[in-house]
Design a binder for these strands. Sequence first.
DNA 1: ATGCAGAATGC
DNA 2: GCATTC
DNA 3: GCAT
Length: 697
Amino acid sequence: MIDVRAAAHDPAKAGKSKAAVPGFKSRPKKSKELVTPLEYAQRLQAALTELGGRKNTSASQFLKGKRVFYYGRDLNFASAETRGRMELIVKHGGTLVPSYDPAQITHIVTDGAKRPLLRSLGLRTLEDIPGHIHIVKWSWITSGIGRMRYAGNDDELPQTDYEFMHASFSERMPPGPVPRFKAGFPPRTKAVSLSSRVQERPRNGAPSIRGGSVDGSDDSGEISHITNFTQDAGPKQRVSTPDHAGPSPLSPPLSPVHGSRSRVYSTCIVPPKASGPAHIRIPEDDKRSGKGEVSADDPLAEFYDHARAERDVELHQHNTNGDAEEGRTEKGEMLHKPGEAKNGKGGFLCDNKGNRSPDRCANQDVVEKLEQLMELHRTKSSMEDHWRVYSYGKAIRALRQHPRRITSYEQARGIDGVGDKTAQKIMEIISTGELRRLDFEKTDDAETITLFQGIYGVGLNTARKWYNRGCRTLQDLNEGKGGVQLSHVQQIGVNYYADINSRMPRAEATEIFERVKTIALRLDPRLFIEILGSYRRGEPDCGDIDVLITRPTDDGKTHRGLLRRLLGELHAQGILTEDLCLPDDFNDLELVYRGLCRRDAYSTRRRIDFLTIPYESRGAALLYYTSDPQFNRSLRMKANVMGFALNQRGLFAGVVRNPSDKRQKLSDGTCVASETEREIFRILGVPWQEPHERVRG
DNA sequence: ATGCAGAATGC
DNA sequence: GCATTC
DNA sequence: GCAT
């Protein structure tokens, strides 16, 4: 059952010959040839010599005279990124020295860690590298390129300044006088109008149709009865651009859905007051509460947790008087914590209702360029790039909200999440309409990596691996080129590439859900079955359908075992077509299913998820699976700051974390709320927000 | 210098 | 244990 | 890359 439809069109092949390096026309697009960086560098230098310096390149030659040893991530294999970078070095007049030869080289360019570098050079410490050799980051190159664009001549500033700025390792600054520059670079951005040709390629980023608000007055969080309602909460739906045709691999649908297995606390009953030894930190309370650890053998230990949890809640009730107060301690100190989920003034993003950003904002061109850059970084595998993507994401979101056109560097800096570098880029776009950095990052692997990453079940590593094995198209993958073997899930991902990466109109989700719901209720009329995700947020189109299933237990029964029967039925009816992820034990109460479905035999396949949860965690689950990821992050962060932990199962107090590794939880804490969304909002001191208001992206 | 969420699932 | 997903 |  191979759907040819999806595999047929292949966006990667859309005749795009990219000549990354003007001088070297036919770079061997060799399929599987695994080249070491050394070999590649040699080849590059050879090609250059052959051309006799008569490269038809307009690139600035700011690297002329520099003899560069480029140290990529992998010594055995020159990734496309490494190769692209090597070419760039050569292109700008640098001489690539293929191997580490201290007598030869003037610069080592590396973004990598110190240890691997030393190890591969066979050295013990950085001191072993002769002092005249600069060890700089890749950014030294790119900034150099940018710099030359603006400055026009080499000696506007002493080189050492730049090498200092881009030194790879702080403990080994380059030789020479320590430069003095005040924080921030000279904002000499205006400068020369670039006369370079505009090679624009409208790289359709994420189309993301936003908008659509709904006065969704449903409040499903509070249903205390077996309401099987699903009023199509879409009074004023916006007309969605019917855009789900093209294979636009760039924006995989987002919708939080996952589950977990065991529920530690089956109920959330807080027992009557008791004050026991406190080991959790409660603001203002530390001294008063007797010190002491929870002794493992204290039979009342667990009881103390409950008591503390309750006290915690009370405490926070007072602190967060009423609605929108931010997290303050009793002293009125701001609790603060790094992270983007906080808004500029120290409050949390979740504390104010979301205003939907308009489809087009005053800085749309800037946003688009930055998005392109972000997508390019997404294809690069260093952690640096990973966090860069994170940062760009944040800056872009903030920029979208910004109501007015940015006109100065300072203005840009004023936006939360926009730092020096991004501000510079913003100004470059504003004043030149271009972003040079895009060209530099546009290595020719990027497109293919992006294509592959769009396959369900394929992330960056797999995409790169396949690229390195010579695959360039979905068809290559299907043919097993380079020995590539698709997993079951990946095969489905390839077969339905276009389907999975498209969004469905809200009405289609409604239709599918109604059918599912009817069938489910036939199996058990008391089921609580609700559709979450972007649908519940009232968005005009949805990337997938998230269905929450649970059942009140007042009659002594549960939904145990239901999912298996439901899936069987849905498969039989042809609604479910493929399974992506099945629970391993259908007898649990908390289950996750992921699969594909379709409205009818002629329809596009859609992603659908089923989540079953214990009845008492429905509030937390509704909250978690309905709010957009940003909102969730913000809420979780606020919960953390207040000493709680929030997840899809509930709000927990007294979570103890390993102080040296804050990610490690030593105890799970006590559930203080989970049955209703309102309860969780209330305890966290966040004003109630309807699903459609919980949008921050 | 450090964190940027966190947990489940599949291979 | 790593990669991927939500 | 950004914020702390």
